[in-house]
Simulated scan of single mutants.
Amino acid sequence: MDKEQIKKDLIRHIIEYLNLSDYTSEDITDDMPLFGDSGLELDSIDSLELTVMLEREFGVKITNPTEGRKILVDVNSMADFIIANQEKSVK
């Protein structure tokens, strides 16, 4: 799966898993911050949901909470993590 498709799937899953009914796929950009005062303004419960979503939908697991803070920044960073970890599991 290529990076653009992964990003599209991520956005769709983020909306679905977090029940963001006020958002459409067009509303969420690849570099929109997921946490903090700008962007989606998600919270710690949402980060747990995103972690579960990554494992269920993409087969990748965040095992280190410090790593998670770097991965769950935006759609781009999540897609990079998925690509890097799916490649590791194939090798």
Rank of each mutant, 00 (worst) to 15 (best):
M1R: 11
D2E: 14
E4H: 08
Q5T: 15
I6E: 04
K7G: 04
K8V: 07
L10D: 07
I11Q: 01
H13A: 07
I14W: 02
E16K: 12
E16H: 08
E16D: 14
Y17M: 00
Y17V: 08
N19E: 14
N19D: 13
L20C: 03
S21N: 13
D22M: 10
T24V: 01
S25G: 15
S25R: 04
S25C: 05
E26W: 00
E26K: 11
D27L: 01
I28H: 02
D30L: 00
F35R: 04
G36Y: 06
G36F: 07
D37C: 00
G39F: 06
L40E: 04
E41Q: 15
L42M: 09
L42W: 03
D43F: 05
S44G: 08
I45N: 01
L50I: 11
T51E: 04
T51D: 05
V52A: 10
M53W: 08
L54D: 07
E55M: 10
E57H: 11
E57G: 00
E57N: 12
F58D: 04
G59C: 09
K61R: 13
I62L: 11
I62V: 13
T63H: 02
N64M: 06
T66Y: 08
T66N: 12
E67S: 11
R69F: 10
I71S: 06
I71N: 05
V73W: 02
V73I: 13
D74T: 12
V75F: 03
N76C: 03
N76I: 06
M78E: 05
M78V: 04
A79T: 07
I83D: 03
A84T: 10
N85R: 12
N85E: 14
N85I: 02
Q86W: 05
E87F: 07
E87I: 13
K88E: 14
S89R: 14
